[in-house]
């Protein structure tokens, strides 16, 4: 089943065309990699998919529904979740509360039970707490449940972000550079974790990553963005040998070298 269809998507910021005529089809169960040099527009694609930005032109269909005009929270509730390139936890809240907040996309109750603590307040709260703690246990964060999220070590903050995204009950998970700032050991653990959650939660995943070992080890299909346009699409092997891709990345390095 086709879960996500992106058709001729474009996004401009003033004069800057960040995304240009971008097309994407994702089947249920796919694990797609999205790569490209810095500033290519990868994060912008995620912001468009999740409704944080409205497309300039083009359409996005998710789970059979057009996302035009949908608010980000509505899209989350339709089954799309994401993590951020720069971690965005609820820093002053407990690790447990971080997950509980996400879980209310799945289980919630009205205002009157909240104000008066009448049923179903207690039952639903217990349910939310139990589910959140279970999820934390799976990801080895249960011992930190009552710590402030901002006090977690960096790697565990990344892990909590993924945990929290899963608590919303997604069909499609968007991971924006989950390995950024991780050492090879942590990156390797992350690779197994992503494989594992994909199986366990029957997820479809789109992964933005600079770490090629992760992309090549995980993805069946890779898309390459450069200056907002799709320049290549294929298996990791095909991508590695594609002259356009090599040029885009080399070009990028030249710029870097020149700047230095």
């Amino acid at each position: 089943m086709q879960l996500l269809t992106v058709n001729k998507l474009s996004k401009s910021f003033g004069g800057l065309v960040a995304i240009n005529n971008f097309n994407l089809r994702v089947e249920s169960g796919d694990l797609v990699g999205l790569i490209g040099p810095n500033g290519a527009g990868k994060t912008t694609v995620f912001n468009l998919l999740t409704g944080l930005y409205q497309p300039t032109t083009g359409s996005i269909t998710f789970d059979g529904r057009d996302l035009k005009g949908k608010h980000p929270h509505q899209i989350t509730r339709m089954g799309m979740a994401r993590t951020f390139q720069n971690i965005r936890l609820f820093g002053n809240l407990s690790v447990l509360d971080n997950v509980k907040i996400a879980y209310q996309a799945v289980v919630n109750y009205g205002l009157i039970p909240a104000f008066l603590r009448v049923p179903p307040f207690n039952r639903r709260e217990e349910e939310i707490e139990k589910a959140a703690l279970e999820l934390l246990e799976i990801f080895g964060l249960k011992e930190h449940a009552y710590d402030r999220a901002r006090n977690l070590p960096y790697g565990e903050q990344r892990c909590l972000e993924i945990t929290r995204a899963l608590a919303t009950g997604p069909k499609l998970l968007l991971l924006d550079e989950p390995a950024a700032g991780m050492n090879p050991q942590e990156t390797h653990e992350l690779l197994s974790l992503i494989k594992w959650i994909r199986e366990q939660f029957k997820l479809t995943i789109i992964l933005i990553e600079h770490d090629m070992s992760l992309v090549m080890g995980l993805c069946e299909r890779v898309l390459v963005l450069d200056y907002g346009s799709l320049i290549a699409e294929g298996t990791p092997q095909e991508i590695q040998q594609n002259p356009k891709v090599i040029e885009a990345y080399l070009g990028d390095e030249e710029v870097v070298a020149w700047e230095e």
């Binding site: 608010h71 980000p72 965005r88 996400a102 209310q104």
Partner: peptide, 8 residues
């Protein structure tokens, strides 16, 4: 931003 992504 994160709150919206959690369905809030």
């Amino acid at each position: 931003l994160a709150a919206q992504m959690m369905g809030v």
